[in-house]
């Protein structure tokens, strides 16, 4: 299962980030939202290409969930909120909870 890490942290930032747990934005399957809609949302919110968006959409559809982004908590919350605004079922998990 692939994830997206965005941005290029500085060495100092990388040290700080390494001490903090990674947070994962996970989209769960629902039988209501159209596949084409989910693909559009992934492209719009996460900046995915058509191919990436379709791959994650199919992962959600076939496996029930897909990790669509991983990284710092604040950014993960930003993406979770944006995806929830589009009415996707989203949850956040940290490495510590896994």
């Amino acid at each position: 299962m692939s994830t997206h890490e965005q941005g290029s942290p500085s060495p100092a930032g990388a040290t700080a980030t390494a001490l903090e747990p990674r947070w994962h934005v996970i989209v769960l399957n629902d039988p209501v939202n159209l596949m084409s809609y989910v693909v559009l949302v992934f492209k719009k919110v996460l900046g995915f290409s058509e191919t990436e968006a379709r791959r994650h959409m199919l992962e959600v559809h076939e496996q029930g969930r897909s990790v669509v982004w991983s990284g710092a908590r604040e950014r993960a919350e930003h993406y979770a909120f944006a995806l929830q605004q589009w009415h996707l079922t989203v949850t956040l998990e940290s490495d510590e909870a896994r």
Binding site: D30, E77, A80, Q84, H87, L88, T89, V90, T91, L92, E93, S94
Partner: peptide
């Protein structure tokens, strides 16, 4: 809210 999102992790 329409979607059954858990906000427990927020």
């Amino acid at each position: 809210l329409a979607a059954p999102n858990s906000l427990a992790d927020i």
